[in-house]
Design a protein around this nucleic acid. Sequence first.
DNA 1: TATTGTTATACTCTATAACTATA
DNA 2: TATAGTTATAGAGTATAACAATA
Lengths: 148, 148
Amino acid sequence: MTASVSAPSKVELLELLSSVGGAVCQDFAAAASPHGLTHMQVRVLTHVHRDPASMRGIAEALACDASNITGIVDRLEAAGHVRREVSPTDRRVKNVIATDAGRAVLRAIRGTMQAHVAVDTLSAEERALLHGLLERMRPALSGAAAKS
Amino acid sequence: MTASVSAPSKVELLELLSSVGGAVCQDFAAAASPHGLTHMQVRVLTHVHRDPASMRGIAEALACDASNITGIVDRLEAAGHVRREVSPTDRRVKNVIATDAGRAVLRAIRGTMQAHVAVDTLSAEERALLHGLLERMRPALSGAAAKS
DNA sequence: TATTGTTATACTCTATAACTATA
DNA sequence: TATAGTTATAGAGTATAACAATA
């Protein structure tokens, strides 16, 4: 007997991972939409909701070019969810900081996702297992710079 | 002892899944870029590389609006990777069919991904396990219509 | 010189709405 | 009427290159 599943190829696993990941992104977007946020804006807000981060730091965490972050933070700032603050130690650097309003919105979005039916498909043990497997793969992916 | 991992929350699992899935998408895009294709074009080509599919069918499989598929297939067709064919049974329907050139390009891209170091992070058993867990979650996600 | 952030540009993806041609 | 596909539109994300301010 060849295990429970019919031995999918490595590429098929990557295709499935990209497909499922994309679907989760869409669900994040759907949860954020009522609050006027996009998925990328949620990711940036998530990255700075606890500790401030520089524009460059955000770009590395999200594995995209720094020039993209300007527009995303522009829109978050216009909505009052974050603010920019020039670093006291290096005046070239701008730190992005979540506002109380931004944290409240993020809390609401994460609350919606917390209730997502997909996560209840798996038991707590399976979720921990899945989490561990994904964590092990991540450093070898393009978003390797992403720390959180 | 609380298992091997410090019990991540449901939301954290979804965030990780979306992050890892996004990174895999980027790696697909990087593998496709030398051939002049984008990640979405690869997904469409993958969907029709064996059997033809209608525009509507592709849209449902990729969980996006049908109007998007027009442009994506336009570009694939201009590059000679697919062709459109009016259905013999319903003249409203157009079936998208991969060309030999399209299949060759897809084979090359999948070959690049097959050698991706990230999949070697896990053993064959772990890959099968991961595949099974993802398959179980997928029906409960927004891309639930996606069959492959 | 090197780095941070921004701007300008061009392209792809995205959803919505309106249109056509078929059924 | 309803459906398949397209077009038009507007917005968001993406990378590249060039730029100003600062180190």
